[in-house]
Write a protein that binds this DNA or RNA. Structure first.
Length: 300
RNA sequence: GGCGUCGUAGCUCAGUUGGUAGAGCAGAGGACUGAAAAUCCUUGUGUCACUGGUUCAAUUCCAGUCGAUGCCA
């Protein structure tokens, strides 16, 4: 029996992942899974650089525009969804390509993620309110009582880390640290990871240019049409919230555009920080398709 | 052409009553287990425009040069 292989393509935003993934999928005659936590949403298109219709038609894509911004979704569900789909795909294909820049989501598929509970919306709301009313010190105090072990290792200035740990402790009655196994789950398929990167200046030029193209193709209209939903998590996204800052009058539209570029560059940097520590990733320039193919052939 | 103001980090600027300098932004590095395009942490040495002069010591005072800018002609 031939072994099944998932080819994973990662890299910073705007580096050119989509084009390479499509080439690979065509080369191997397989389908593409997106691991981009914002391209999931059907309402978000221009601002999240969704692949064009031509690109989407060139190869069968999954997990693009399959959700609504109103749907609750998270990494764990994504992991489950991907594993289910791969089961099906591997019945007919030996290879599948997963492409995306959301590091946590990629890792959830490749290494697995602990089965922790979803918080109830009420509990989450309550914790957020506590943070907003009483500040981070009060969250720290609450976590210290619930889970001193995690308290001693967590970044105590990051409210979201504290919030999540409290959520898990309160819903399970157990400590977050005891439930976090952090084990690598065995997958019934091989994984080959390739990373795309290029020199910083070229990447940043591409990012800046892409924002300009987004504006030319109707970014403002798309973003403004979702204005009333700006508080949804899916819209807490580079390219959207800056424009909402301008619409609400806090900054000029020119400033918003500059901010989108700056924040996209920072996002790219964070992505690189995440992926750089993964020793399984083999890095290439986005133009080196032949080299990438050679590498994949030698590994498969 | 005359008079004035300015020339300090990639950018905007502060400052040194003479003892070689510091903020914001940009940038860089890092963390990351159900909101992850999220959230959080760390990080500032630069011919103080150039050439001379005064001085133990000049980025700081003086002169000249160059550049920018304003007003007057």
């Amino acid at each position: 029996m031939q072994s099944k292989t998932l080819i994973v393509v990662v890299g910073p935003t705007a580096v050119g992942k989509t084009a390479v993934a499509i080439q690979i999928a065509q080369q191997f005659g397989c389908e593409i899974l997106s691991a981009d936590s914002r391209q999931f949403y059907k309402e978000l298109n221009i601002g999240v650089a969704r692949p064009s219709l031509n690109e989407l038609n060139a190869v069968k894509h999954h997990f693009i525009a399959h959700l609504s911004i109103f749907d609750p979704y998270n990494v764990y569900k994504f992991e489950q969804d991907v594993l289910l789909l791969l089961d099906k795909l591997f019945e007919k294909d030996n290879i599948a390509v997963m492409v995306g820049g959301s590091g946590l989501y990629v890792d959830a598929v490749c290494k697995g993620i602990d089965d922790l509970p979803d918080p109830s919306p009420e509990l989450r709301k309550q914790i957020i309110e506590q943070y907003e009313m009483e500040g981070i010190e009060s969250l720290k105090k609450r976590l210290k009582e619930l889970d001193p072990e995690y308290y001693s290792i967590v970044n105590l200035t990051n409210p979201k880390r504290l919030q999540r740990a409290i959520e898990v402790c309160e819903t399970t009655g157990q400590t977050y640290s005891s439930l976090r196994k952090n084990m690598t789950h065995k997958r019934p398929f091989r994984i080959i990871k390739i990373g795309l990167n290029q020199d910083r200046e070229t990447l940043y030029n591409r990012i800046n240019l892409r924002v300009d193209v987004m504006l030319e193709t109707g970014l403002l209209k798309e973003v403004e049409s979702l204005y009333e939903y700006r508080y949804l998590n899916a819209l807490n996204t580079v390219g959207y919230r800056e424009i909402y800052n301008a619409v609400s009058g806090d900054i000029s539209i020119e400033q918003a555009i500059t901010d989108i570029k700056t924040n996209s560059r920072r996002y790219a940097k964070r992505q690189l920080t995440w992926f750089k520590r993964d020793q399984e990733i083999k890095w290439f320039a986005p133009t080196e398709f032949d080299l990438i193919c050679q590498y994949l052939q030698s590994e498969i």
